[in-house]
Nucleic acid binder design. Structure first.
Lengths: 190, 190
DNA sequence: GTAGTTTTGTGACGATTGTCACAGGACTAG
DNA sequence: CTAGTCCTGTGACAATCGTCACAAAACTAC
């Protein structure tokens, strides 16, 4: 739980008392490769803090897998819409490696938040961070070409490129696998 | 302020007392067409609740305008990253019509939130809604072609198409103005 | 080690897109 | 009303992309 505590302290003031109050909402959990953290059609009742390994979110559109996000150590993975609105998730979250996460149980988190304002503030910070990331990636598509998006990832999020296979990366970049391969080729030539 | 109160009630429980405590953080403000709500390089210290009119967020990339968001009545416009992190905004928010907004002052909002948990929860709800929207639009680019994105907007966000000119819409859809024109043509033929 | 699977690169070809250029129509300010 | 501006459509052409097909390379499981 050490990593999580450091992560929390990087976001907000957090007393030992708040940490104690938060404990009932937390549980450590292990996933094997290809285990689901969240499945399409289910309501998302958790935030997943990733301790080790990584996972991805993806849509299954007519049998085609479309990856929409990758989550590494010290990231929070969740379906923020389903988590907040209680609507069914339209996408899946799946472990890409053996994965260790700390699960925030929604109900117990809310109970804890009622007892300590710092926990409420922590929730707000997590959601804000999540929103910032979504905004960042959303704007990539409006501002840049596929090649520029790849460059952006290399500079700003190298961990994705180091750990995710190019096949997996392609749909995240919004292009076909073959196109990503050619973008890399073009770039090496020039 | 009536619309705002209805909006708040649609998000969360909110007592009259919380409403009173919130007042010092609120101020109504008018913008003329092409007035800036937020300018590149400044820190975003406000949430803008839109009462009437609409505005847009855009990047200026080497002199080219790239629209990243449109905000209508009952939307909240802000730079969520700058608002939370105190970093300078990389984009602008500008009125596209005469605009009436209710400004949430960040500092006073935080003071009010300390005094009433309902205000804290309101902040969380606003951010969560914002995150959901970003996620939705971010995924559009990973899941769909430009034509499918246009269809999606027509079905799910018709107000954008009714009120925003096609020239303005193009960069939001991530294509050139001419391409949007051709997509519309193709669709009418088939 | 071996067989099977996954990943990556590449050729071919048609479809789509970006860019530049131009023109007509709609809108606006005086 | 008129001049200027903004918006939309379209032609031409090169660049890029998606799709299908195939093969080599890398990785896995036993």
């Amino acid at each position: 739980m050490d990593n999580l505590l450091k992560y929390i302290h990087s976001l907000t003031e957090f007393s030992e008392q708040s940490w104690e109050l938060l404990q009932p909402a937390l549980s450590k959990r292990e996933f094997k490769k290809n285990d689901f953290l969240l499945q399409e059609g289910n309501i998302c009742n958790s935030l997943f803090y990733i301790e080790s390994g990584y996972c991805k979110s993806y849509y299954n559109i007519d049998g085609t897998i479309k990856n929409t996000g990758f989550f590494f150590e010290n990231d929070i993975a969740t379906n923020i819409n389903s988590f907040g609105s209680e609507e069914k998730s339209e996408f899946n979250i799946i472990a890409c490696e053996p994965l260790t996460v700390i699960v925030f149980n929604k109900q117990k988190l809310f109970e804890a938040a009622k007892q300590a304002r710092e926990i409420e503030a922590l929730g707000r910070s997590c959601i804000r961070l999540f929103a910032s990331k979504q905004e960042e990636f959303s704007n990539l598509f409006k501002l840049y070409t596929a090649q520029e998006r790849l460059n952006y990832l290399e500079v700003n999020h190298p961990s994705i490129l180091q750990r995710v296979s190019l096949s997996q990366l392609a749909s995240f970049l919004g292009v076909a696998r073959e196109t990503l391969s050619r973008i890399r080729k073009r770039r090496n030539l020039r």
